[in-house]
């Protein structure tokens, strides 16, 4: 969990807009869904950066765009000194060995027609890392690493429970010895008693293989548990990025405050004393974000300035980045 201050991944002004088209033959672009709208941050080597936000805020798109599963609209992503946005073909494939992804839903991220062996060995074969006996041994080793019996190699995904499938997906991500893994809500499709198993596994693997995680989730208590720093996203933009303890004890942005106060704590004595900030209304559509600050439609503190100028995502103190006029 300890991070040296070496930067592993740097994202600069990343944008991903999905076009909205109309017309049948000649499709005209009439607008854009601004899923990721000018995001900059750094991930330090060996840390877990938590990324939280409500559904539709663009956190999964951000994770996918960083790994080039989506082609970014503009911006730069530097990983180990290379700009991923400009890479193509062989060079891109080479980098992808070092950066992997774990998806949310273990029921749809594993091909139902392939065996566990085929699923986990596929990356090894694509990158010509291991063949034959060596490959079999590597797959068995990976299964042991994620706490599955190595005799399961010839079974199909439907023979496993949700937690076990997520372990298979983790083994696949580890196959190429990556440096960096984007975990896109890896536990939210799992039952409560299984979630802790997977989080513990991820933490053990991080220690063992010196991994760096970008941990995307909407469960704030789990993010607090696993992350060293946390970024909060709202409507395609980062609103706050700070140290984990700082964020949870002294949040700066009004959205972060409301989000934290909305999380129920499983202790009725604490719940009785808490005062909730209940946000009015819903998240606006990312196709038509409001003018000025994105949060001004729901912000209890919004002033005139908030409806006119967009706040910059700036460093307000050495550890705190925040995008709000009032901080």
């Amino acid at each position: 969990m300890k991070a040296d201050n070496e930067v592993l991944l740097q994202v600069v002004n990343l944008e991903k807009h999905f076009p909205i088209t109309s017309g049948f033959v000649f499709e005209n672009q009439v607008g854009a869904v601004k899923a990721v709208d000018g995001i900059s941050f750094e991930v330090l080597k060996g840390e877990t950066l938590g990324l939280v936000g409500e559904s539709g805020c663009g956190k999964s798109t951000l994770g996918r765009t960083i790994l080039r599963l989506h082609r970014p609209t503009s911006g730069e992503v530097f990983f180990e000194g290379k700009n991923l946005v400009e890479l193509k073909g062989k060079a891109l494939r080479k980098v992808r060995r070092r950066a992997q992804m774990i998806f949310q839903d273990p029921y749809s991220s594993l091909n139902p027609r392939t065996t566990v062996y085929e699923i986990i060995s596929e990356p090894l074969q694509i990158h010509n890392i291991a063949t034959g006996k060596e490959c079999v041994e590597r797959v068995q080793e990976l299964l042991n690493n994620v706490g599955l019996n190595h005799r399961f190699v010839n079974r199909y995904p439907h023979e496993f429970s949700g937690g076990q499938r997520q372990r298979i997906a983790i083994a696949r991500a580890l196959a190429l010895n990556p440096e960096f893994i984007v975990c896109d809500e890896p536990i939210s499709a799992l039952d409560v008693s299984i979630q802790a198993q997977i989080v513990n596994l991820l933490e053990e693997l991080q220690d063992e293989f010196k991994l760096t995680f970008l941990f995307i989730a909407h469960d704030l208590s789990m993010v607090r548990h696993i992350s060293s720093r946390v970024a909060v996203m709202y409507l395609g933009k980062l609103v706050e990025l700070t140290d984990r303890d700082q964020l949870y004890t002294d949040p700066q942005h009004p959205y972060t405050k409301a989000l934290l106060s909305a999380v129920p704590i499983h202790d009725p004595l604490v719940e009785e004393k808490r005062r909730r900030i209940i946000l009015e209304g819903d998240v606006p559509s990312p196709a038509h974000p409001p003018k000025g600050c994105n949060f001004n439609t729901r912000c209890p503190l919004a002033e005139r300035k908030c409806f006119e100028d967009e706040p910059l995502f700036r460093q307000v103190s050495p550890d705190i980045w925040c995008a709000c006029h009032l901080v």
Partner: peptide, 23 residues
């Protein structure tokens, strides 16, 4: 179940105590 949940207001970082196995 109660021990496997991290708390938003806990002070120290502890390892989660999970229930092994499946239903």
């Amino acid at each position: 179940l109660l021990r496997s949940l991290p708390r938003l207001d806990s002070k120290i970082h502890q390892k989660l105590i999970s229930i092994e196995g499946a239903p």
